[in-house]
Amino acid sequence: MNIFRLAGDMTHLMSVLVLLLKIHTIKSCAGISLKTQELYALVFATRYLDIFTDFISVYNTIMKLIFLGSSFSIVWYMRRHKLVRRSYDKEQDTFRHFFLVLPCLLLALVMNEKFTFKEVMWAFSLYLEAVAILPQLVLLQRTKNIDNLTGQYVFLLGAYRAFYIFNWIYRYFTEPHYVHWITWISGLVQTLLYADFFYYYFNSWKNNVKLHLPA
């Protein structure tokens, strides 16, 4: 465990928990894509299949449980909570899961570290995580509006991406045989998509400021 990895895990954890706590507190999920949240729940469910079979550390197991619990809680709130689900932009959040899930599954069947159920699911979870933000991006482009909730969530996710890349670079130079092409390439794609998301975020933020200026 290095400082970049820890910082990456903590910002990732905070992104999910901040989102969950805010939805719980303000009883609103306006601007948040349920499609993206469902994809993230699927990402964690398929990646952590090893939770009871491979013990890595107490830290690892607890983090996995928190990610699983919080991501499924967010989906539950957005689908089932009677106040929260009213604030959901259903008409705007039309991205089909299928278009992301199917190519990722096919890619995982072809590109994996080992052709076993767990390894294919693990590769699938990495590919899916890389593109799971797309429905959120589409929703953001449509509504052209980004509030504090979405802003903080995106900022924390972006920080998580950046720290993980530093972690891989650090591990590559400090650990022998640390080469993980699948993780790195899908992680890089994911980070590039976040850079795109950040671009829209700052544009929207800038436009909102402009709108408040006197004509």
Binding site: D9, N60, F67, Y164
Partner: peptide, 10 residues
């Protein structure tokens, strides 16, 4: 061992 693939990252 070489056969088992262990993923220690989250």
């Amino acid at each position: 061992d070489q056969e088992r693939v262990v993923h220690d990252e989250l």
